[in-house]
Computed example of a mutant assay.
Amino acid sequence: MNSKLTLVVRILLGLILVVFGANKFFNFMPMPPMEGAPGEFMGALVKSGYMFPLIGFTEVVAGILLLINKWKGLALIFAAIISVNIVMFHLALAPAGIGLSAVVAVLNSILMYANWNKFKTLF
């Protein structure tokens, strides 16, 4: 795969993960109010006391690893776990926000395909 394309995709995914992960700690992009099942789900994650910080930490670590181009395999596995859960949340509970979650999943898929030699032993 084109190395310039993978560089752009890697940096873009890394930035998205770092920004949205850091937002879970510093709340510089306030979350819009959610009602019903999405609000209850997010409220439960926040009330657990550990889940939001764990998700944010995982996003930041994966994003930084992608940005500095170290341990890409580990970073992409972390990002895959995150992106699958984001997509499932939006498919099941908040379909209006599926756009960014689909972008994250596609970027992650492109990078996993480009680095398939690191993952083929898993399958």
Rank of each mutant, 00 (worst) to 15 (best):
I82H: 02
L76A: 11
V103D: 01
A92P: 06
A105L: 12
V103L: 11
L93N: 04
A105I: 10
L100S: 03
L76G: 12
A92Q: 13
V84A: 14
A102R: 00
F78H: 05
G73N: 14
A75R: 09
H90Q: 07
S83T: 14
I86D: 06
I86S: 12
A105V: 06
M88R: 09
S83C: 14
A94Y: 13
I82C: 04
A105F: 10
V104I: 14
A102W: 01
S83P: 01
H90D: 02
I98D: 03
I81W: 13
V104H: 00
V87R: 04
A102M: 08
N85D: 07
L74K: 13
I98M: 06
L100P: 04
S83M: 14
S83Q: 11
I81C: 10
M88V: 14
F78T: 09
P95S: 02
G99K: 01
S83F: 05
I82A: 06
L76E: 02
L93F: 13
I81R: 02
I86V: 13
V87W: 05
V103H: 01
G99R: 01
A80T: 15
V87A: 11
A94C: 07
G97K: 05
L93I: 08
A102N: 01
P95A: 01
S83R: 03
I82K: 07
I98H: 01
I81V: 15
P95R: 00
A94E: 12
A75D: 05
A79K: 07
S83L: 06
P95W: 00
A79C: 04
V104Q: 04
V84R: 13
L74N: 09
G97L: 12
M88L: 15
S101F: 00
V104R: 02
A79W: 03
F89Y: 13
V84I: 15
M88P: 04
H90M: 02
L76V: 05
L91M: 12
V103E: 02
I77R: 06
A79F: 03
I77V: 14
S83K: 04
A75H: 08
A102L: 13
L100R: 05
A79Q: 03
S101A: 15
L76C: 06
V103Y: 03
F78L: 14
I81D: 09
A102D: 00
A92F: 13
S101T: 10
V103I: 10
V103M: 11
A105H: 08
I98P: 00
P95T: 03
L74I: 15
F89M: 04
A92S: 13
I98R: 01
G97Y: 07
L93E: 05
M88H: 12
A96Q: 08
G99Y: 09
V87F: 08
G73P: 10
F78D: 08
N85F: 09
